[in-house]
């Protein structure tokens, strides 16, 4: 990166809404994956091809459903509450632009081109 560009590139930084949203999206996908890795194997190993004698219940619900889906559902709701009210950033999403800049308009304004940090 040239010194001129380095000096000018400090005028830009990653949009925090982008950074926060990306971090949150990764966490959410991770939670979904955890759900998949728990619910499907647990229900398969504990709940498939059981004889009537092997079926146990908790409050009338088959135990494999209780622990494989029911409890994770409650945990997911609790996680959702925590995530929404304590973790998710309250980002300012901006106002609707009535005359949004065109790409050509931005280029004509003479702003210095960035290095490519997005490679």
């Amino acid at each position: 990166m040239s010194s001129e560009n380095r000096a000018l590139s400090v005028h830009y930084e990653y949009d925090p809404v982008f950074l926060h949203s990306r971090r949150e999206a990764i966490i959410i996908v991770g939670v979904w994956a955890l759900g998949l890795l728990w619910s499907v194997p647990y229900c398969y190993l504990r709940g498939y091809n059981l004889s009537p004698q092997e079926i146990h219940t908790i409050w009338g619900i088959p135990s494999w459903v209780f622990w494989g889906i029911g409890v994770p559902w409650i945990i997911a709701d609790l996680f959702t509450a925590w995530f929404c009210f304590w973790y998710m950033s309250l980002d300012d999403l901006g106002e609707e632009q009535e005359n949004p800049e065109t790409l050509q308009g931005i280029e004509r304004s003479g702003e210095t081109r960035l290095e490519s940090p997005h490679e």
């Binding site: 809404v17 982008f18 926060h20 949203s21 990306r22 949150e24 999206a25 959410i28 996908v29 939670v31 979904w32 759900g35 998949l36 619910s39 499907v40 229900c43 709940g47 459903v65 494989g68 889906i69 029911g70 994770p72 559902w73 997911a76 709701d77 996680f79 959702t80 995530f83 929404c84 998710m88 980002d91 999403l93 901006g94 106002e95 609707e96 632009q97 009535e98 949004p100």
Partner: peptide
């Protein structure tokens, strides 16, 4: 119950993965 199982995370996935960013982008471009 297993068939519908991923509904435990449907709200947070459906609204949280794309929600803020697509809303922001849509505002920015109208």
């Amino acid at each position: 119950a297993l068939w519908i199982g991923s509904y435990i995370v449907v709200p947070i996935c459906g609204m949280g993965i794309l929600g803020k960013r697509i809303n922001q982008i849509a505002r920015r471009t109208g």
